[in-house]
Simulated assay, not measured.
Amino acid sequence: MARTLAFDRTEVIRQARAVFWSRGYESASVPELEAATGLSRSSIYNSFGSKRGLFDAAVQSYLDEVIRPRLSSLTAAQVSPEALDRYLQTTGELFQKPESLPAANGCLLINSANAPIAREEHVSQAIAAYREELHHAFSRGLRAAAPQLPADRHLLLADAITGLVIAAFALVRISPSEAARLIEAARQLMHPAVQA
Score class of each variant (00 low, 15 high):
A2F: 08
R3M: 12
L5V: 04
L5E: 13
F7N: 07
D8I: 09
T10I: 02
I13K: 00
R14S: 12
R14C: 12
A18P: 02
F20G: 11
G24E: 05
Y25M: 07
S27H: 15
A28S: 15
A28G: 05
E32S: 11
T37I: 08
S42I: 09
S47D: 11
F48T: 10
G49C: 11
L54N: 08
D56T: 03
D56Q: 09
L63T: 04
L63P: 04
I67E: 13
R70F: 10
L71K: 02
S72Y: 04
S73D: 10
L74V: 11
A77M: 15
Q78L: 09
S80H: 04
P81E: 00
A83T: 00
L84D: 00
L84M: 12
D85K: 00
L88M: 03
Q89M: 09
T91V: 06
E93Q: 10
L94T: 05
K97V: 12
K97A: 05
P98S: 07
P98T: 14
P102D: 02
A104V: 03
N105F: 04
G106T: 01
C107G: 05
I110L: 13
A115K: 02
A115V: 01
P116E: 15
I117Q: 07
A118K: 02
E121M: 10
E121F: 08
A126L: 13
A126Q: 15
A128L: 02
Y130P: 03
Y130I: 00
E132D: 15
E133G: 10
L134Y: 07
L134R: 07
H136C: 10
F138M: 03
R140D: 05
G141K: 01
R143E: 13
A146I: 10
P147G: 13
Q148R: 12
P150Q: 10
A151M: 12
D152A: 13
L155R: 14
L155S: 11
L164S: 03
A167C: 04
A170D: 14
L171S: 01
V172S: 09
R173N: 05
R173E: 14
R173V: 05
I174Y: 13
S175W: 12
S175G: 10
S175Y: 00
P176M: 02
A179R: 07
A179S: 07
R181T: 01
L182E: 00
A185M: 11
A186Q: 00
R187S: 14
R187Q: 15
H191V: 03
P192F: 03
A193V: 08
A193Q: 02
V194W: 09
